[in-house]
Amino acid sequence: MGLEQKLGDMGIVTTTLDKMVNWGRTGAMWPLGFGLACCAIEMMSAQASNYDLSRFGMELMRPSPRQSDLMIVAGRVSRKMAPILRRLYDQMPDPKWVLSMGDCASCGGVFNNYAIVQGVDEIVPVDVYVAGCPPRPEALIHGIMTLHEKVKGETLRDWA
């Protein structure tokens, strides 16, 4: 992003700019709908009426990785799916975050065998892990709010 190169380090002015940019990023973080298995159903429940995700700015799950900021890996990642997951992560533009939803994405979950990647952090760097099998929609929302807290602590130089 060209903003960081042009401004450099301007002390107090940059800090306030950080806050503004982070406010913009957390206010409307568009998720990539990467629902794989059972956690995807809880993600859809979180999107729908009772636990509305639109109030966090995530009105739509963008189907294309080029238009999304947040990849919610919801569900178990099999060995066949792993290269595709990495390719989608590489296709997302900066700044991007990864939220690993559920036990299978965080650590392999119940399935400790030949077919499942034991934790999606073997493939992509993860920012927030949400535990549960599947996590309640409230747990997912808590994970998203934790991610917002983390983003608010970032500076522009992290993504330069």
Partner: peptide
């Protein structure tokens, strides 16, 4: 297909009857 293959059948073979019921939900 096969992008969600979890090896559930093989994992069931390694657990006792009642404990492998957990696999069947998924």
């Amino acid at each position: 297909i096969g992008f969600l293959h979890t090896g559930i059948e093989k994992t069931i073979e390694s657990k006792s009857y009642e404990k492998s019921e957990v696999m069947t939900d998924r």
